[in-house]
Structure formats: C-alpha cells, structure tokens
Amino acid sequence: MTPLIDILLSLLILTGATFTFIGSLGLARLRDFYTRLHGPTKATTLGVGCLLIASAVFFSVRDEGASLHEVLVTLFLFITAPVSAHLLAKAALHLKVPSLAPTPPPDSDKPSNSAD
C-alpha cells in the first residue's frame, strides 16, 4: 500500500467516524424530536458513506481489482435515510409530538399517502 493511499484511507475513516459521532451527538443533545431528526439523516449517513468508500478503496487496492459492492450499501443508505426521516416526521406530526417550533395545522382529512 502506497503512503498516498494510506493517507487517503486514514482521512476517509477519520471523517466518517467523526460524522457518525456528531450525528449521534445531535440525537442525544438537541432539544426536540424534529431537530434531533436532522443529525442522523445527514451527518450519520455521510459518515457511514465515507467509511464504506474507505472500505471499497481498501479492498480494491488490496485485492488488485475493483471492489465496488460497498457502493451498493452507500447508495441504499443515501436513498433510504431521507425516506425514513420523512416517515418519522410524518408520524411525529400525526402523534402531536411536542416541538420547539409552532407545528403546522393538521391536514384536512386523514394522513395522506405521500409520494414516497
């Protein structure tokens, strides 16, 4: 393994782990459900994305052939994270979970079956 790849991998792993940490810190630290939703959706997803890319680079270099199946998990996480966040927020609004910000008025009829 060349020093350049070593440094690239170390940076990716460190960034990834830091973002994962900050995402969960947000989950533990922020003061209402809706603000807590932001940390895991964005920071944690990018953190795990960085770690998965580091893993793809690591195995591609070690086995001297492209190892791209980590990309599959990365894509999957980036597609599903906003969907779960949307559903969680919708459920929280439906249950009238307390919020720091004034909540929007409830929808006229039953919860809509939204696009995702």
């Binding site: 939703l37 959706t41 964005k42 906003p82 969907v83 949307h86 609004l93 910000a101 809509s112 939204s114």
Partner: peptide, 30 residues
C-alpha cells in the same frame, strides 16, 4: 418524492409532510 428526498439530504432542512392535495410540502428547518 425526489424533491422531498433531496430536501432531507441538503443543508438544514427535512421534509416532513405532503399536503393531501399535493400542492404544499411542509419542511422542517433546523
């Protein structure tokens, strides 16, 4: 749905609810 997902991944916003008539998307900002 692509717009809602994009909003959730980009700075400071998470999409929370689509109105029944599909004309308004309620977005939560941090």
């Amino acid at each position: 749905s692509l717009l809602a997902n994009t909003i959730s991944l980009t700075p400071g916003t998470v999409s929370t609810r689509l109105s029944t008539d599909r004309r308004t998307l309620i977005v939560h900002t941090l």
